[in-house]
Amino acid sequence: MISFLSKIGSFYYREYKLNLSGFQDILTNIIFFFVSIFIFIFSIGPEKETISLIGVGIVWTLLLLSSTLSLRKFYQDDFENGNLLLMRLNGFSYGFISILKTFSHFLFVQVPFLLSIPIACILLNIANDKVVYLFASFAIGSLILSCLGSISSSMNLMNQRNFLLGSLIVMIFSVPIIIFSVGIINMEKNFYSLMSVLVGILLIVFSINPWASGLCLKLSLENN
């Protein structure tokens, strides 16, 4: 048991080193997020009320688009350099690899966005009390996006020619997440019931993820 936990620890040490060396990728994603916010502000005009009215929707849409940018690298590098195989031979099942990678994506891609939310809220004139709700909804929503990203990226390994297909799947399945997440912020009275729906969606995709991603990883390694 201790050796298994050590292996998990070393997996995250590896992910940390990799993400540290590729820090410019994370930074590019964050810059894309903020530049897009500025473009929205300039295109809408100077009315504070309009901006604050649609601000939450803008933040969520851009968070979705920005995190989609990183999906290509979810499994691709590890697949191409044989590290997925190494993980399997190190005793991790395919399903478990997908869970580890999902949390790694959440930690190293989504958490920087989570930390950028307060600045985005200032730029978009979103009321202070709504920031907490946005924060809570994105904490759950981003984990859902990571699970969906895992499924679509593992599917992409079998379909190397069309990366956009995976992104499209994430976008389509993200629609309910955006509806409920934005709903939480605009209907504060229903906070707990809408959060329950989001947590429900998270539990569904979290339980499907290891099964679907694991199968795709297995098939793509078999046919590689």
């Binding site: 050796s3 050590s6 292996k7 620890g9 070393s10 997996f11 040490y13 590896r14 080193k17 990799l18 060396s21 590729g22 191409e80 350099n81 044989g82 590290n83 195989l85 190494l86 190190n90």
Partner: peptide, 22 residues
């Protein structure tokens, strides 16, 4: 295929392998 991580140094790769394979 070679599984070493190209973005990292030789020392980093050795450290990672030592940790992963205990």
């Amino acid at each position: 295929k070679t599984t070493s991580l190209r973005k990292l140094t030789v020392q980093d790769n050795i450290n990672i392998w030592k940790k992963i394979f205990l």
